[in-house]
Design a protein around this nucleic acid. Structure first.
Length: 323
RNA sequence: UAGGCCGACAAAAC
């Protein structure tokens, strides 16, 4: 059948941590299992505590589980714990070293990370280089990113996406677009980054042109188009795009609504915002979260007396503390 | 077939 690890990994990717946990509890022969998947699921869920707990529960550790844990600590900004897990390992390989290097790179020690990269045994490794590239991009170290990028012999799409991110981070959209156009292969990440660059700058025209070329427009691409329009104050158009999504068979997600509510709030479009908020749960089946309530309360607060009553009612009914 | 790299809001970073 399907390997347990694959199932747990899939649950994690799909954001179904509970399912991943039940699978984990149900599976036999835990002692020979690649444990990393469950930790990964928690890490993807941004729940570092649960990841650590799962890690501690495991009767024994191996390269996989330790590497996942190091990655979780690296991305959870806990360098010390990452180093500690690394030190406790019986053996290391290029994968676990890469995780540790990422921990240093993302936590204020990019130079140390670079030294570690150069010293890394086991020959050349593309993912290791891409990890450093991505860190440079994130930190805004464009020059270092370019130097490294130029020296990578067999760049893959991850390398290209990382350099693209580096340009975008510097707001050099000309160079970003040049890189984007030079790519032999693009994935949804590439398209999203380029589209987001235009959308967040309020460049509806370029965003729209690019959107037309996106091979498979997903909910993220649509959300970015909505955001581009909101940025321009074209909230009516943004709300209209929500309908277009429907027609295209793409389901908005909770971020889509957050973007719309923000836009309506900013533009003072009280009724439209309220309607979207109501439709969110009743039509699309998406439960409003804390941020949505903040938006809608803010929105209704700007309105007339009648809607202000709505706002008070809403605050009383919401499952969060006001503020 | 399994553990390390790249996507919108937020977070983080600056």
């Amino acid at each position: 059948g399907i390997p347990w690890a694959a199932m747990i990994g899939l649950c994690g990717e799909a954001g179904r941590v509970e399912s991943a946990k039940s699978l984990f509890d149900a599976m036999p022969e835990r002692d020979v299992f690649p444990w990393g998947a469950l930790i990964q699921a928690h890490a993807l869920d941004q729940d570092l505590e649960q990841a650590r707990r799962a890690f501690d529960r495991m009767p024994q550790h191996n390269l996989q589980s330790c590497t996942s844990m190091i990655t979780a600590f690296a991305q959870g900004r806990d360098l010390e714990q990452a180093q500690r897990v690394f030190d406790g390992m019986g053996e290391h390989d290029v994968v676990s070293r890469t995780s540790l290097i990422q921990a240093y790179a993302l936590n204020g020690h990019i130079d140390r990370a670079r030294t570690m990269m150069l010293a890394s045994k086991g020959g050349h490794d593309l993912v290791l280089w891409n990890t450093m590239l991505a860190a440079y991009a994130l930190l805004g170290h464009l020059e270092e990113a370019k130097i490294l990028f130029d020296r990578i012999p067999h760049r893959n799409i991850g390398s290209w996406n990382a350099i693209l991110l580096a340009y975008i981070h510097k707001n050099d959209l000309i160079r970003a677009r040049e890189a984007f156009d030079s790519m032999l292969e693009r994935n949804p990440t590439s398209w999203t980054m380029m589209l987001a660059a235009y959308a967040l700058n309020g460049d509806v025209v370029r965003a729209g042109e690019l959107f037309q070329s996106v091979p498979h427009q997903d909910e993220i691409a649509w959300t970015l188009m909505i955001q581009a329009n909101c940025h321009k104050g074209e909230c009516k158009q943004a709300v209209a795009l929500l309908r277009s999504m429907d027609l295209d068979g793409i389901r908005p997600n909770s971020i889509t609504f957050l973007v719309i509510l923000h836009g309506c709030s900013h533009a003072g479009m009280v009724e439209e915002g309220r309607d979207c908020f109501l439709a969110m749960s009743s039509v699309y089946g998406i439960a409003p979260e804390h941020d949505h309530y903040c938006c809608i309360v803010d929105l209704l607060g700007r309105s007339n007396r009648r809607l202000l009553d709505d706002a008070e009612e809403l605050v009383e009914s919401m499952p969060y503390l006001p503020g």
